[in-house]
Design a binder for these strands. Sequence first.
DNA 1: TCTACAGTTTGAAAAATATCGAACTTAAAA
DNA 2: TTTTAAGTTCGATATTTTTCAAACTGTAGA
Lengths: 101, 101
Amino acid sequence: MKKLTLPAASDMTLTAVCAALGDPVRMKIAQCLAHSGEKNCSGFEVDHLSKSTLSHHIKILREAGLIQPRIQGKEHFYSLRTEELDQRFPGLIALLLAEEV
Amino acid sequence: MKKLTLPAASDMTLTAVCAALGDPVRMKIAQCLAHSGEKNCSGFEVDHLSKSTLSHHIKILREAGLIQPRIQGKEHFYSLRTEELDQRFPGLIALLLAEEV
DNA sequence: TCTACAGTTTGAAAAATATCGAACTTAAAA
DNA sequence: TTTTAAGTTCGATATTTTTCAAACTGTAGA
């Protein structure tokens, strides 16, 4: 099993978070999770992207500190890291929620 | 004289704003303006970038709706569009201010 | 008018990013 | 144990972005 690393709240940078959210696919995923709580890959409402591309976007969101996985069997459920984000970037999740999805 | 367009608050997108802030040079400029109010190009504390590159970054910030120019003689003074940003993305400027510069 | 200055635009090269298919991993089901 | 399903990793390609120098624009001062 792969050990996957999530940055501590103090290690996240606003620049990396913004870069992660600066792509329309990743913004969609983040907003989707902000609204729905938890989803696996097939639950993101992004159209006709290969699974390798989707996996790439998820990795960027994860490495920026925005999302965390919960692995259950063969499924990977993702959710926003609400606690860390509220601590490190208060107001950020509200910005995601305010946008229409 | 060139007519330059700023997007209305309602036309700004969070994705474009995040993409604009997702580059370290532009994040620096935005934070600089958030703290200092108004500066011209030579006032941004970015190291050894050609003026054409700096101009390019300013354009991206402007087109995303983040900054506005005030042209006075040969100088272009830039500032954050605080009213529009507070209306369209409440909490965003606080995020910029919260980061160390 | 001529020159210097602050900044933009253009065109090109280099670097980074997005995308895909194929191969791989892991876990559940047959 | 074999197969299937969910997702990641790898390698390659196409697109985008960053960057610079050179040319240009508009303003102020000599």
